[in-house]
Design a protein around this nucleic acid. Sequence first.
DNA 1: CATGAATGAGCATTCATTCAT
DNA 2: CATGAATGAATGCTCATTCAT
Lengths: 206, 206, 206, 206
Amino acid sequence: MRSENEASGQKGRSFIEEARRAQIVASAVEVIAEVGFAHASLARIAKHAGISKGVISYHFGSKDELMEEVVGRVYSTIGEHVAEKMAGLRTATEMIRTHVRSVAEHMRGHRAQLIALGEIFYNLRTADNTPRYGINASEEIFRAMEEVYRLGQESGEFREFDRRVMAITHSSAIDAMFAYWVANPEHDLDAHASELADLIERACRQ
Amino acid sequence: MRSENEASGQKGRSFIEEARRAQIVASAVEVIAEVGFAHASLARIAKHAGISKGVISYHFGSKDELMEEVVGRVYSTIGEHVAEKMAGLRTATEMIRTHVRSVAEHMRGHRAQLIALGEIFYNLRTADNTPRYGINASEEIFRAMEEVYRLGQESGEFREFDRRVMAITHSSAIDAMFAYWVANPEHDLDAHASELADLIERACRQ
Amino acid sequence: MRSENEASGQKGRSFIEEARRAQIVASAVEVIAEVGFAHASLARIAKHAGISKGVISYHFGSKDELMEEVVGRVYSTIGEHVAEKMAGLRTATEMIRTHVRSVAEHMRGHRAQLIALGEIFYNLRTADNTPRYGINASEEIFRAMEEVYRLGQESGEFREFDRRVMAITHSSAIDAMFAYWVANPEHDLDAHASELADLIERACRQ
Amino acid sequence: MRSENEASGQKGRSFIEEARRAQIVASAVEVIAEVGFAHASLARIAKHAGISKGVISYHFGSKDELMEEVVGRVYSTIGEHVAEKMAGLRTATEMIRTHVRSVAEHMRGHRAQLIALGEIFYNLRTADNTPRYGINASEEIFRAMEEVYRLGQESGEFREFDRRVMAITHSSAIDAMFAYWVANPEHDLDAHASELADLIERACRQ
DNA sequence: CATGAATGAGCATTCATTCAT
DNA sequence: CATGAATGAATGCTCATTCAT
C-alpha cells in the first residue's frame, strides 16, 4: 500500500498513480454533489469511476483520506484562480471587489466542486468524532482577509472596525451567495457578486 | 401509535405523551449537537434519554418525523423570543439592530439547539434524496427581512439596494456568527452582534 | 384475563364479551384478507376495529388464539350452510354435486373469509414452528367425503377407486376453484362449480 | 455487487459467484422448507449456509431477488425433467398420464424444493403488497395443459369440456398430492399419481 | 496494481406482549 | 373492562474495510 500520510503533496507518486488519484477524486466530487455526503459510499464512487472498490482502498488509506484529498484539490484550484486575479492590485477596495467577483466567476463553472466542498466541510469528522473542518478551518482565510482590511484601514480607505467580525461576515456572505445559487440555478451569480461587493465596501469605508 | 399528521399541533395528545415527545426531542437535540446528524442514531438518542428504542418509534412515526419536530420546536422557540423583542419597534434601523442582537441573546443560552438546527437543516433529506430544508427553507425569513428593508427604503432610512441579496447576506452573517461562537466558545457573542448590526446598518443606509 | 383454552365453545362468556370477540374476529378476517397474514398485525386489526391493541390481548390469550378462533368461526359457518343444503339427499351423486355447488354458492358472498381462511391455514404455526393446520387439518373432511364415495360404490353408482385419492383431489379442486376466483373476480364461480361437479361425477361413475 | 437485472441468465457471472449463488439458493430452499417462509430470515439462511449475512446481500440485490431465483431454479429443474419425459409422446391420454407421473417421480427426490416452492408462491409479495406469484403465475401452465386437452378433443380421445376448469383442477390435484405426501411421508406417491392419472383420464374421455 | 468476495457492525423499523392506571 | 405506554427482540439492508488471488 502507498499513500501513508502525504496530505496533498505528491512526493513519491508515479504518473499513473497520480492519474488514478485524480480520477477517483473527480468521481468523489461528482457523487457527493449528486447524492450528498451521507449517501456517497465508496461503492458508488467506484461505480461512477468505472473501477472496483478495492482500487480506492489501494490508493487512499481510508475514506477520510480521500475526502481530505478532495478538499485539498478543490481548495487549491480555487486559491490559484483567485490569487491570479488579485495579483498586482493596489487598493484594499479593489482587492475586496476582486475577491468576491473572481471567486464567483470561478465557481460558476465548478458547481459540483462547490457542493462537494460544502458537504465535506460540514460533515467530515475525525476518528474522535469532532468536526474535521468547520468554520475554524477558515482561519487561514480569515487571516488573509484581515490583512486586507488592515491595509485599507491604514491607507485610510476603511474606517475602524472589528476585522475578525468583518472577515467572518464577508466569508459567510460569499458562502451563502453560492448556497443560494446552488439551490436556485437561475439566480444571477455575477450580479449577486457585484451587489455583495457593494455591500461590503459600504460597510467598510469611512 | 399516535402522531398521524398533526404537524406541530398538539390536538389529541395527552399530557404524558406530550412530555415524552418533548423528552425525546430534547435528547435528539443534545445527541445531534454532540455527535452530529450522521451519527445521531435512534439507538443513541434512546440511550441518551434512558428509554428503549421502541419508545421513539411509538411516539414518532419515523426518524424524519422526529427531526422535523426538532426543527419545529427549536424554530418556534426562537421565533417567539425574537418576536417579543421586536414588538413595537418603529424604524427599520431599530428593527435590524434588535433582530441581530435578540437572536444572539437568545441562542447564547441554547447552544445545543443551535447546533442541532444547523445539522438537520444541512443534512435532512426527503425520501427522494433532495434536501428537506436547505437555504430555500429560509424563504419565509428572507421575505420578512425584505419587508423590513422595503420599509427602511420607503422611509428614507435606507438607500436603494437589492433586497434579496441583502437578506441572504444578513441571514448568513448571523448564522456565521453563531457558527464561529460554537467553534470558539470564548468568542464574545454580544459584541459580535453589536458589531454586525453596525455593518448591516452601514451597508443599508444612504 | 379470561378465555383460557375454550377453543370455540362459549361456555362462561358474557354477552358483551362474546360480542367483542366476534367484532375482533371480523376485523381480523378483513385485515388478513386485505393485507395478508404476514402483515396482519394486532395493531392493524385493532385499528380496523376501532379499538386499542390491549383489547385484543385481553380477550384472546395470544395472537395465535385469535387466529384459531377465526378459523373455527369461519369453518363452522361454512359447515352449517353446506350441511343444510345436503340434508335429505339420497344418492352419492346428488351429494357430490350439491357439496361442490353449495360451498361455491356460500363462499361467493364471503370472499374475505375465504381468503383469510387460506392465509391462516397456510401460515399459522404452533410454538414449535410446525404448521398448525395444513392439509392434515382436512382429515375430518376427507373422512366425510370418503363415506359418501363408499356409499356410492356400495349403491353401484360409482366404480371402485381409491377413496383417499379421490377425497384429496375433490377437496383440492374446490380450493383451487376458489383461489382462481379470488385472483380473477370476473371468473364465473357457479359455472365452474357445475363443470367441476361434472368432472368429479365422471371420474367416479362406472 | 453483481446481479443487476439478468434474471435467470448467467451472462457475466464468474464460476465462483455462480457457486455462491447456488449455495445460497440451496440454503434458502432448505431453511424455507424447514421453518416456513415467514421465519426464513436472511440471518437464518446465512447461518445455515455457514456464511455471514452480508454475503447474501452481496450476491443478491434483495431478499425478494433471492426468492425469485429460488423459484426460477426449482421451476426450471422440474420443467427439464418433465419435458424430457414427455418428448415424443403422441396421444393426449399418454401426455396426461406421463405428466402426472413424471412430476411425481421427480419431486419424490426433491421434497424440500417442493415445500419451498409452495411457501414462496403463496407468500411472496411485491413492494405494493400484491402477491408476486399466486395462482395467476400458473397461467403458462394452464395454457400448456389446455393445449393438450384441445389436442385430445380434436383427436376424438376426449369429450368436450371446459378446458380452463380442467386445467385448474388437474393442476391443483397434483399440488394436493404433493401436499398430502409432504404431510404424510409414508403416503405412496407413485400409487397416488397413477390413481390420479386414472381420475383425470376418466373425467376427460368420451 | 487491481479485483471480487467476504465480513461484521450498525441502521431504522415492526411487532407481540406486558403492565400500571 | 379498556387504554396507552413501553419493551426488547428480530428483520432486511448498507457500508467501510480486509484480503487472497
